[in-house]
């Protein structure tokens, strides 16, 4: 069997009295793009901070390529797993874009030339060339987001975690971010993305993990997850629009192949147009 890149076994974490994660287990494989869903306060962010080595689990273990990460090795975890925060402002600390991107690599104790190379690569990847000398605190929301992604990109971690990457972005900027996420996937990165956007999760992810009250209540392919009404209800989720439309078309007997869910609205529209042509 294929070895998971990162696996979490029976993880527990609590803030003082309040349990935030209980008995969470998950295996993440190389090259996956996983959407992590669940209502606010379900434990997604806490889970991510544990994966990233910022929080220390109360019990349970995290294994990287089969090797257990000891409590002392949490720093090691931070080299392997990068975390793009939801609010870019909470991440950005440096006076210029280039300096900002260099912060992570500098902490990895790389040589000056290597840091410079990584900063250049990330700037090129995120198309930040024009902004390199600018102070991040004067940038727009979408630009800040790109900088915060470049920050983590420059650390060249095996796994990248995004906490609600589209939050507070306008449609064009969220489309840009989605494009970036697609590109990262094509380039072989392993991605974990927390999101509330069911349509995005449905069309983008190849696997969805659902959190509720500190536990994982479902884990599987998008179509399967979005069919389980109980799960959707518990996690305060809705069915994606494309599925609702398709199910309605099936029920009305217009389409027959129920399993062939369209991934995007555009696909659904094409499909429907084709059926219409067939009829006329």
């Amino acid at each position: 069997m294929k070895q998971p890149l990162l696996s979490v076994k029976n993880l527990y974490y609590s803030y003082g009295e309040k349990a935030a994660l209980s008995n969470v287990s998950l295996e993440i494989f190389q090259g996956e793009k996983i959407a992590v869903m669940g209502s606010n306060g379900a434990g997604k962010s806490t889970f991510f901070l544990n994966l990233n080595g910022v929080l220390k689990p109360d019990a349970g273990g995290i294994f990287f390529q089969g090797k257990k990460i000891e409590k002392k090795g949490l720093r090691e975890l931070r080299r392997r797993v990068g975390f793009v925060f939801q609010d870019a402002d909470s991440q950005i600390i440096a006076p210029t874009v280039a300096a900002e991107i260099s912060f992570g690599p500098m902490n990895l104790n790389l040589s000056g030339a290597e840091v410079e190379k990584r900063v250049e690569d990330s700037i090129a990847y995120m198309d930040l060339g024009d902004l390199r000398g600018r102070p991040p605190h004067y940038l727009s929301g979408g630009e800040k987001k790109r900088v915060s992604i470049a920050d983590i990109l420059a650390m060249e971690t095996e796994i990248m975690i995004f906490d609600e990457p589209m939050a507070a972005l306008d449609p064009v900027n969220s489309e840009n971010v989605e494009e970036i996420l697609n590109r990262l996937h094509r380039d072989g990165r392993t991605l974990l993305i927390a999101t509330h956007d069911v349509n995005f999760a449905y069309r983008y992810a190849d696997r969805i993990v659902v959190f509720s009250e500190g536990r994982i209540i479902a884990d599987g392919a998008p179509v399967e997850i979005f069919r389980e009404e109980e799960v959707l209800e518990r996690a305060h989720l809705k069915q994606p629009g494309a599925m609702i439309v398709w199910d309605a078309l099936c029920a009305a007997g217009i389409v027959s192949n129920r399993e062939a869910y369209p991934v995007t609205f555009e696909q659904a529209a094409e499909e429907i147009a084709r059926i219409g042509e067939g009829r006329s």
Partner: peptide, 21 residues
């Protein structure tokens, strides 16, 4: 608090250093 987490997650180790032009 959130900012401290963000620093940690990028490998902060008691020293804040940047590449300067």
């Amino acid at each position: 608090n959130a900012y401290y987490d963000a620093l940690l997650s990028r490998g902060y180790d008691g020293k804040i250093e940047f590449l300067t032009e």
